[in-house]
Simulated scan of single mutants.
Amino acid sequence: MKTFQTLSELAACTGQEVAVSDWITITQQQVNLFAEATGDHQWIHVDPEKARSGPFGGPIAHGFLTLSLLPRFFESSFEITGSRMGVNYGLNKVRFTAPVPVGSRLRARMKLLSAEPMEPAGMQMIWEVTVECEGLAKPVCIAESIVRRYA
């Protein structure tokens, strides 16, 4: 895990890949709990037996489950000791470029696209987050995430 002392120190990394997260294993239990929380009970996610005969050969995670892991990816990648809190501000772009089979491992690469100071004592950052699935050549999700951090 990388450590930055200040928001300005992190802002100096604009245009660079800043960090790579830890791996996260996607379980059927996570998928089922996500289905319960969102009401999205499509069989491709929650019925492993039926999903085996589906287009992906087994159950896959919801795209929005993958997207909801962004805060966890950030948290496992770096910390800013001079920042007391951060909030998700939104997304500019999101693409789910490949399915995420249940049982697979994901990690994210974070590239800082921009960092603009905000009053009082904050910074708005735009991140390109590329979520990789172990063993797949192409990413499973690419998102442009807007995060606000406060000192």
Rank of each mutant, 00 (worst) to 15 (best):
H41G: 02
P139F: 00
S21A: 13
V147C: 10
F34K: 09
A61D: 03
S8P: 03
V46P: 09
Q29H: 13
W23I: 02
M85E: 04
F64M: 15
Q124C: 05
T81C: 08
Q28L: 13
H62E: 09
P117K: 13
R148K: 15
Q124T: 06
M118D: 09
S83M: 15
I126H: 07
S68N: 10
G86Y: 12
S76Y: 05
L91R: 10
G15Q: 11
F96R: 01
T3P: 01
M110V: 06
I142F: 01
L65P: 07
P101I: 08
G54E: 10
E17Q: 14
P48E: 09
T27E: 03
V147L: 10
M85Y: 09
I146W: 06
V31M: 04
K93G: 00
S68G: 06
S53N: 15
L10F: 08
R84A: 12
G135V: 01
A11T: 13
Y150L: 10
P101Y: 04
P101V: 06
T25H: 04
E9T: 11
A35T: 03
G90N: 12
F64A: 08
L69C: 10
E9N: 12
P120W: 06
K50C: 04
R109M: 12
P139T: 00
P101S: 10
V94C: 02
K2P: 00
R52F: 05
L65M: 14
K93A: 07
L7R: 06
H45D: 02
F64I: 10
T3C: 02
A12C: 04
V18R: 13
R105F: 02
P101N: 07
F73E: 00
A115D: 05
K93M: 06
A143V: 15
L70E: 00
L136A: 06
T81F: 02
M110Y: 01
A143D: 11
P71Q: 00
D40G: 08
R148I: 15
T27M: 08
W127N: 06
D22S: 13
V46S: 09
V140E: 02
V129C: 15
G57E: 12
T6S: 15
A35I: 10
N88A: 14
L136M: 12
F56E: 07
Y89C: 10
S21N: 14
T130K: 12
Q29Y: 02
S145N: 12
C13K: 14
S8D: 15
A137F: 01
S83R: 11
R95F: 00
G103M: 10
H45Q: 09
E116A: 13
R107H: 14
M118P: 01
A11N: 11
S8V: 08
E134Y: 05
A19H: 03
T97C: 01
L112S: 01
A121H: 11
P99N: 03
V94D: 00
C133T: 11
Q29K: 14
S104L: 02
A115F: 00
Q28R: 09
V87G: 05
E134A: 13
I44E: 03
F4C: 11
